[in-house]
Design a binder for these strands. Structure first.
Length: 233
DNA sequence: TGTTATGGTTCGGTTACCTCA
DNA sequence: TATGAGGTAACCGAACCATAA
């Protein structure tokens, strides 16, 4: 590894990079020549092992497109593929390797942002739902106190709830199967359906209690530990 | 068979460079 | 013209794995 890096530093392959940099600059500058100094000039002046310790070399659109295609096919490369791709693009294998490393990092970062946004929205929805349910509970308790009657068993049409203490998610046991096995004495309410969105695959590591079905009537969590449930009241 | 050294790869974090507003 | 922000190529160190001695 160290040896490879040393080799890379010693051999700074101007051939593979001069064209890319100048090409990219021409594309971006619009006029084609802004009078700015090009990397090719630097390469000629500094040469391999010159004073410039690190050269920033833009890839051309064509090179990027090919790399993107390969990345879509597989996000990692074996040594043979790396060599072949480098030869095809006129780059050093190390450049191809670095490009794939950075590309993987970008992909992961983007996915993390998407996941984060999704969880944020989901949390907001649950918060709203929680507020609404608490209000409903207060109303029912007030009603019960007003009638001052003994405990009335809930009508069959009412819904049984359970909530996961770790993520505060509510299970609706009257709407299809639930993996919750929390016992008895569940509270009752008239409107309890928490709509479940389809879950992004990448979120699977975040919360085991995520709804696994998009249908609003399938509030089924994939918890492997149903004891996480508790009574709502 | 278990241990150790070595080489290769990937990843997370960081730096340095380039472009543009 | 100077400058700050954003994008990204390149680097570094750590961790992991496979293989040979």
């Amino acid at each position: 590894m160290e040896k490879e890096k040393e080799d890379e530093e010693r051999v700074s392959s101007p051939d593979s990079t001069v064209s890319s940099v100048s090409g990219k600059r021409l594309e971006r500058s619009g006029s084609g020549n802004t009078g700015s100094r090009t990397i090719s000039d630097e390469d000629e002046e500094d040469g391999p092992g010159g004073s410039c310790s690190r050269k920033k070399l833009r890839l051309t659109k064509e090179q990027s497109a090919v790399l993107e295609d390969c990345f879509r096919a597989h996000s990692t490369l074996n040594p043979h593929q790396k060599q072949a791709l480098a030869a095809q693009l006129g780059l050093r294998p190390r450049q191809v390797e670095v490009w794939f490393q950075n590309r993987r990092a970008r992909t992961k970062l983007k996915q993390t942002e998407v996941d984060c946004e999704y969880l944020k929205r989901w949390c907001e929805r649950l918060t709203d739902e929680n507020k609404r349910l608490q209000k409903e509970v207060a109303e029912l308790r007030a009603l019960k106190a007003a009638t001052s009657s003994p405990a009335i068993p809930p009508p069959a049409s009412m819904t049984t709830l359970a909530m996961c203490p770790s993520c505060q998610r509510v299970s609706n046991s009257s709407k299809g199967p639930s993996l919750f096995t929390g016992n008895s004495a569940m509270a009752t309410t008239s409107a309890t359906t928490v709509k479940a969105n389809s879950k992004p695959a990448a979120l699977s590591n975040y919360c085991q209690f995520f709804p696994i079905a998009a249908g609003s009537n399938q509030n089924m969590w994939t918890s492997t530990n149903a004891l996480h449930t508790r009574e709502l009241f």
